[in-house]
Design a protein around this nucleic acid. Structure first.
Length: 718
DNA sequence: GCCGTCGCATTTTTT
DNA sequence: ATGCGACGGC
């Protein structure tokens, strides 16, 4: 068989990574160096050239998207369908294991996955039961605590609470929450991993089975693994297994949610004998951009070390724009977007605007709307996270298992049917006392006539509705079942009554859910698998993703993407690096890595902007230029002067002196400032006490100043 | 059960 | 500024 196609398109480093016969392999893959490609090719190489059985391959990623891309690439390379390989996310694979061995894992057969929102609801309920004051202990912080412990592999009894009343308190809620999950057959995301780990740990025969099966293990984005993911992977290894990990310590940006860079830093020592291969040739960006990225990241300590390079040309300088405020910043972005499209023949979709925090998107959005530029914001709720979808899924879940408390709570009074807090409280009370599910408690409450007639009828109505849905849909195809439930539950009718476009959009989404069910390809049990799919794949963010529009997103969500034109906005101390990161040791380096990620998204041209003045939480601040910009080599940066096409009030042109200002400012006027030295006036805004001038100082670069306070002295030209 | 008002927090996100 | 949750009146 001809296998040359597997290696043909690769460079030397990539080829040695693909073909390495080292026992363990660490591939340090810089941004844009063909990481996913190497992983896919290595898998195919081991099957086609080394004769490894597909059944013995386990490939793990973090996101469904990455898993999908990997499958696609493998499929494209192999001349036949992939069979037997396990390719998926950590969570997906853990789910698969738990489904197969639910009994050994101590679960009920039809356990349900709890997403973050469901989890928070349940934690709130637990806190109520324990009479914990939510004012003093925010439910969110309990949620973080519980997830943190699980990510570290710790059960309530393993949490070290010695002498820490705060921890002791949290641990109690954790314990209670865990019991509630166990009772209800519920598994949160962190639990999937921890359970899968414990399953192997306490069932040696199973562990043995999987160790024998998965001879070659591959992990993508290894720098993002947390403790439990690492331990899980490690547990699977024995003397005969091989492991390949791919990642980039310089792109580790998820430390705040438990990722451990140490996992990749220490990999070569912990998994000896190990070969390390660096992929440093970049196929994405110009040398200018790469040099900037290299210089920036060199400020970090504790790196495995890497230097990106390209065979391509130097490219254009990086543009730096000093805006007066966030509005001016947005104006600049809009101007340049227009210029890129109109003068450089670019497309909107080639342009990304990246920011540190979501709050920054608003002003940018407003600017784009005003200029009639199409845009798309990443982030926000995904399809399966939307309320109307989750409601429909809750009904579906109830038809599958009446004892799904989370689903019960979600829709017991939706659409509203007169089951208020009082009634629900009663049901919960019975459930708690008699240790039964809410469904059973509701039946008891009705039977024993513990409620006023009105409420009792409402509850009976709900029970009958669900039973009815259950019976009518039993024999239906999955998609028919979803459709039946959409209308049978009254959800469609409910949203029809909503005013405005909102209800309409919700109904559209519900219809979309039917379509999703139609195209869903189950293996055995359609309903169960569809529910699992909905829980683990949050779906696309927004509809029509392939339209030609400017892409707005946070730096975090930009990881893994690339764009010809990239704007990094809000390059200011306190914003980026964020205030929060400046408090804690080590976080600054992560912010720098985030900046590195941002810079390396750009293929052709990078724009950096910062504002001299910005509204944050309602009040005006004067942030200083981000240290990250100052860490970039001067020669790569070109400060953007006033844009000739920006319209300015006519008054600035002439000599219209202001009564109370000491001097007048013309564009091009040379001025002196006590601190910044000599510079040139390049823009003027406002008048009187509000007059602002932008001066490009010879030493300090461009700055916006309030004319009243700046005390600028005109400098006579020689 | 629905709607208005007050108080409070406010980096980043996947599964 | 803004949005979300709690709280109180209809």
């Amino acid at each position: 068989m001809d296998i040359s196609h597997i290696l043909n398109s690769l460079n030397d480093a990539q080829r040695s990574a693909v073909t390495s016969d080292a026992k363990h392999l660490l591939v340090l893959a810089g941004a844009g160096s063909g990481k996913t490609r190497v992983l896919a090719h290595r898998i195919v190489w081991s099957v086609e050239a080394e004769g490894v059985s597909p059944y013995s391959i386990l490939a793990v990623t973090f996101t469904n998207k990455a898993a999908g891309e990997m499958k696609q690439r493998i499929y494209d390379l192999l001349s036949r369908p992939v069979q037997g390989m396990w390719i998926g996310t950590f969570h997906g694979i853990a789910h698969r294991l738990l489904k197969a061995h639910w009994s050994d894992a101590g679960l009920s057969e039809n356990f349900q996955i709890l997403d973050s929102e469901d989890q928070l609801r349940l934690i709130r309920r637990c806190m109520k039961e324990l009479n914990v004051d939510e004012k003093r202990w925010p439910a969110k912080s309990l949620q973080f605590f519980i997830n943190d412990q699980k990510d570290e592999g710790l059960r309530p009894h393993q949490v070290d609470v010695s002498g820490d009343p705060f921890k002791r308190h949290h641990q109690k809620v954790y314990e209670h929450y865990e019991a509630a999950c166990q009772r209800g057959g519920l598994i949160d995301f962190a639990e999937l991993l921890l359970r899968a780990y414990e399953l192997w740990q306490k069932t040696p025969s199973l562990l043995q089975h999987y160790r024998e099966r998965f001879q070659h293990i591959l992990v993508d984005e290894f720098q993002d693994t947390n403790t439990i993911q690492y331990k899980w992977t490690k547990l699977l290894m024995n003397e005969s297994n091989r492991i390949t990990v791919v990642g980039d310590d310089d792109q580790s940006i998820y430390g705040w949610r438990g990722a451990r860079v140490e996992n990749i830093h220490n990999f070569a020592q912990r998994f000896a004998p190990c070969e390390t291969i660096r992929l440093e040739q970049n196929y994405r960006s110009t040398q200018t951009i790469l040099s900037a990225a290299n210089a920036l990241i060199a400020n970090n300590s504790d790196r495995l070390g890497k230097e990106l390079w390209t065979e391509g040309n130097g490219g254009e300088p990086i543009s730096l724009y000093s805006a007066y405020n966030e509005l001016d910043e947005s104006r600049f972005v809009v101007e340049r977007v227009k210029q890129i499209v109109e003068e450089r023949g670019g497309h909107y979709k080639d342009i990304a605007v990246l920011y540190r925090s979501n709050a920054q998107s608003r002003v940018l959005e407003e600017g784009l709307i005003r200029a009639d530029i199409p845009y798309r914001i990443y982030g926000g709720l995904r399809f399966f996270e939307r309320a109307e979808i989750k409601n429909a899924l809750a009904y579906l879940r109830l038809t599958q298992s009446l004892h799904d408390d989370a689903a019960f709570e979600r829709v017991v009074n939706l659409p509203t049917r007169g089951i208020g807090d009082r009634t629900l409280e009663k049901i919960r009370e019975i459930a708690k006392i008699e240790q039964v599910t809410l469904w059973m408690a509701a039946e008891k409450v009705v039977d024993r006539q513990l409620l006023p007639t009105r409420a009792a009828n409402a509850v009976r109505g709900f029970l009958e509705l669900v039973m009815g849905l259950r019976e009518s849909t039993q024999a239906l195809e999955l998609w028919e079942r979803v459709e039946y439930i959409n209308s049978g539950s009254g959800l469609i009718e409910f949203h029809k009554k909503e005013k405005g476009e909102k209800g309409k959009a919700r109904i559209e989404n519900l219809k979309e859910l039917v379509t999703a069910a139609k195209y869903f390809e189950p293996e055995e049990d359609p309903l169960v698998e569809f529910l699992g799919h909905a829980a683990l794949e949050s779906g696309e963010g927004q509809a029509a993703p392939d339209q030609d529009c400017v892409q707005l997103m946070t730096l975090h969500s930009a990881k893994g993407l690339e764009f010809p034109y990239v704007f990094l906005v809000g390059m200011e101390e306190g914003l980026f690096p964020s205030q929060m990161s400046l408090q804690e040791e080590g976080r600054l380096e992560e912010e720098r890595r985030l900046c590195y990620v941002g810079v390396t998204r750009a293929m052709q041209k990078l724009y950096l902007t910062h504002a001299e003045s910005r509204r944050i939480y309602g009040d005006e601040r004067q942030p200083i230029l981000s240290r990250f910009v100052r860490e970039l080599p001067d020669e790569l940066i070109e400060e953007v002067r006033i844009n000739a096409t920006v319209s300015r009030p006519a008054m600035m042109q002439g000599s219209g002196a202001h009564a109370d200002s000491e001097c007048e400012f013309r564009l091009g006027q040379r001025v002196h400032h006590a601190v910044f030295g000599v510079g040139t006036v390049i823009q003027v805004e406002g008048e009187g006490a509000h007059e602002r001038v932008q001066v490009k100082f010879d030493r300090e670069g461009a700055k916006w100043l309030m004319a009243t306070y700046a005390k600028l002295e005109p400098v006579e030209l020689a």
